[in-house]
Write a protein that binds this DNA or RNA. Structure first.
Length: 105
DNA sequence: AGGGTGACGATCA
DNA sequence: ATGATCGCCACCC
């Protein structure tokens, strides 16, 4: 359904610079649990999203080669720190509020 | 309709 | 920590 997709997009858009979220957590936050792969697809389809703020569970960069480098670069540029090969989730993971998220109020 | 695929996730050896 | 496997779900041929 497209609602879910729109919701995912909205969630991604609410991610502040300097924070990250995981594909799975993001899907869940958007009310679409287990749709990590769909989130991936959306990131591919919808241009203009902060795709670099979405990482794998535990803060792992799931891309390969230059794409991975690009993502790390962009994140570090936003102030995100790493713990080894992964994002330091303890400090940067974004916790979506329970509240129905950002319907502009 | 059927089968393959993917910027995933959790689990197990 | 690494690699294999299975579950998941929408999209594409």
């Amino acid at each position: 359904m497209k609602d879910k997709r729109a919701r995912v997009v909205r969630c991604i858009r609410t991610l502040p610079a300097g924070t990250v979220s995981s594909y799975g957590a993001l899907a869940k936050a958007a009310g679409w649990p287990g749709a990590a792969r769909q989130v991936v697809r959306i990131l591919h389809q919808v241009p203009g999203l902060a795709w670099h703020r979405v990482v794998g569970s535990g803060g792992a960069i799931k891309l390969c080669g230059e794409q991975a480098a690009e993502q790390r670069f962009r994140l570090r540029m936003e102030g995100v720190t790493f713990r080894g090969a992964r994002v330091d989730m303890k400090r940067h993971e974004f916790h979506f509020s329970k509240v129905k998220l950002a319907r502009s109020r």
